[in-house]
């Protein structure tokens, strides 16, 4: 397990990407050197804002040469609303890197992201590129505005297929529908997915290893409070923060 760090850092940028999605950057050399794709951080919130628990945010990307870490997040409640109000040079406190990471052992993966669920996938693709793997991506969004997030993947070596629930210039349908089409025409050795629970439940059933990155309300982020529970197919509970966030889909029940 990677050693967990706790540090204050200044925000470098906190940029609006599309209607309610922001990209936050900060710098930390030791963190950049240790973090693995799929991991997350717990970001401090502001007590004056009636929030006090940290919020778990995926690592979106790491710019190795400058030790810059990027977090992509969507405003969904008070905590993320607070994050969106932060300006360059404002301080945040970071706990991390936390959780397990994506397996990098497959050569021909299909990667599926839905909405803000694309957040942990960019750094995954970047690490795959280092191993000379050019994955196929399906990035599904509610509408063309949200699909602006996909532009952030343009500096990677991968084939991006975009779809939207509302009619747009892209494939009309959700990411699972597009995945079904793509899976018919191609042979993959694995699937990696992150997105809303309903999407993860509807990923086409195939015999190849399927990894899902999960989200759950979280308090500690380090395995102590046992709050972020997910039921396994054998009836026990595992925890997103420590046993995950990445699980093999066949091992967890997504609709308990």
């Amino acid at each position: 397990m990677t050693k967990k760090m706790l540090f204050d850092t200044q925000i470098l940028t906190n940029e609006l990407i599309c209607d309610d999605v922001y990209l936050m950057k900060f710098k930390n050399e030791e963190f950049a050197k240790t973090v693995r794709p799929g991991q997350f951080v717990q970001v401090s919130t502001d007590f004056n804002n009636q929030t006090f628990l940290r919020r778990p945010i995926s690592i979106f990307d790491v710019e190795m040469e400058n030790n810059i870490i990027m977090l992509l997040y969507k405003v969904v409640g008070k905590g993320t609303k607070y994050f969106s109000s932060l300006k360059p040079n404002d301080n945040i406190n970071i706990l991390g890197p936390l959780g397990n990471s994506f397996s990098l052992e497959h050569n021909n993966p299909l990667i599926i992201g839905g909405g803000i669920g694309v957040a942990p996938l960019k750094y995954l693709v970047r690490e795959m590129n280092k191993n000379n793997i050019k994955p196929d991506l399906i990035l599904g969004f509610s509408c063309a505005e949200q699909a602006k997030m996909a532009r952030l993947f343009n500096d990677l070596d991968c084939n991006i297929n975009i779809c939207t629930d509302k009619k747009s210039e892209y494939f009309h349908g959700n990411s699972c529908q597009l995945a079904a089409v793509v899976l018919e025409d191609n042979q993959y050795d694995s699937i990696y997915a992150c997105g809303p629970n309903i999407m993860l439940q509807n990923i086409p059933q195939v015999s190849i290893p399927t990894y899902v990155s999960l989200e759950e309300y979280m308090a500690c982020g380090v395995g102590a409070c046992l709050g972020c529970a997910v039921k396994t197919t054998v009836g026990s509970y595992v925890h997103v923060c420590k046993d995950g966030p990445v699980f093999e889909a066949k091992g967890v029940i997504l609709n308990e």
């Binding site: 628990l53 309300y217 046992l226 997910v230």
Partner: peptide, 9 residues
């Protein structure tokens, strides 16, 4: 333990 969700701020 109990079913999820188990935590709410």
């Amino acid at each position: 333990g109990n079913p999820a969700p188990r935590i709410y701020e």
